[in-house]
Design a binder for these strands. Structure first.
Lengths: 259, 259
DNA sequence: ACGCTTTGGC
DNA sequence: GCCAAAGCGT
């Protein structure tokens, strides 16, 4: 059987909130060694989501044999919203499960809430993703990236990201006008998460669909920083680190003729 | 060229937020002596808005020759929302401009956001408004007036304002019931902005469209107090003072047969 | 376009 | 913890 206990219900809640607008149904793969992993492609088949929650995400984690749990994220989200953020949260499944058991326990009060979520059979191909070398890597406060993505979407459906050795520029061109935000790297000793870091092998100039970036930044609450890895003409990686694991988004850039 | 730098982006942001729901397009008149002035009539041609931002509103102000900037306030609002309230904000236009450049600079970080907003040709007549004598003038906390305007709108489409020497009464009559708020003048030494002051030459009894009053009180954030000048059978003036300048609304009263 | 809900700032 | 502003949904 699977039994995973989160110290804070909020962790799983935020994870599901981060991806449920992109993906309706997906398989959670559970194993003893890997913890829980998910790979899913959004309904328009443009955005690939890779989640990894290692055993370290859990206060207790046990998985007797590998399981695939087919979940409706909308339904799971409804259930997760019923717990309080700092409840204990335990997810339980039998070895040949037809349902997922979700249990909240209030840390102080004698309150236990239990939910059974029906599982589904979901087709999915698991792609192997090479951890290739990137032209550049940018780490910045996730909230700052989220604001840029949201703001620029008001101007255009496309967001261009240009990285040079000493700056990253986000630019949008739309009918009402053009806009750009330029960030320069800096190290904030007092608040390291506020730092902006650019590691560059080669300058890049890529354009992405603003809609997908807005889906991606829903993960902002999961981590104070986000790391963006870009390579010319290749899918970009946006990574939010979990206490132990990650939530990664892979997004293909737009090409010139479709911008 | 025009170059105006605000110490706080929030000032222009609040001004635009205050008027953009009433007026979609309007001309900003820029000159060396007058600073930036706007006169606009709301889309239903009932409410007249007069804005004056003197050079004193700016940290730096330069205007080589008179300019008229035709702006879409909705678009400008989108751009202004992208800055942080205490960013520096600089607006720049060439002498024969086809666009307005809007630049935010974070005071601490190395962040610069630039936007180009396309300008438009907008017809507009500038009316001359006599600064006539009024029957009475009332100054009260802007938040208090805003609450009255909002609350009374739930009762009726019309709000009656009755002023006598020692009180101002706001009254609404509607199908669910009638309501009134009576304020008496008082001077608050500790918090002068909380004072209520009535200067009266002659009692007045006027009725206004509640909808327009609700548009007017969107300017509440601009000033802790509002001054209302009323004259029988003449447009009322609602004035919010800026650091250096003002935002004024002129609203014609309803007449008996249309109430 | 308005109201409600969620998120961020004080 | 409370209040205000921004974003989302109807």
């Amino acid at each position: 059987m699977l039994e995973g206990k989160f110290e804070q219900a909020s962790l799983l809640k935020k994870v599901i909130e981060s991806i449920k607008d992109s993906v309706k149904l997906c398989n959670f793969n559970c194993s003893a060694e890997q913890g829980i992993t998910v790979q899913a492609i959004d309904d328009s088949r443009v955005l690939l989501i890779a989640l990894k929650m290692d055993a370290g995400c859990f206060q207790e984690y046990r998985c007797d044999r590998d399981l695939v749990l087919g979940l409706d994220l909308e339904s799971l989200g409804k259930i997760l919203r019923q717990g309080n953020n700092d409840d204990y949260l335990t997810v339980i499944a039998e070895d040949t499960p037809d349902k997922l058991l979700v249990v909240f326990e209030d840390k102080k009060k004698d309150r236990i809430s239990e939910f059974e979520l029906k599982l589904m059979d979901i087709d999915s191909d698991v792609l192997s993703i090479d951890d290739m070398d990137n032209d550049c890597s940018i780490t910045l406060p996730s909230a700052e990236f989220a604001k840029i993505a949201r703001d620029m979407k008001t101007l255009s459906e496309s967001l261009q990201i240009l990285v040079t050795k000493d700056s990253v520029k986000f630019a949008a061109e739309g009918t009402i006008g053009n806009g750009s935000v330029i960030l320069k790297p800096h190290t904030d000793m007092d608040e390291p998460d506020e730092s902006i870091r650019i590691d560059l092998n080669q300058p890049v100039n890529l354009t992405f669909g603003a809609k997908y970036l807005n889906d991606i930044v829903k993960a902002t609450a999961l981590s104070p920083t986000v790391t963006i890895k870009l390579t010319d003409k290749a899918p970009a990686l946006f990574e939010y680190r979990l206490p132990s694991g990650y939530l990664r988004y892979y997004l293909a850039p737009k090409f010139e003729d479709e911008e």
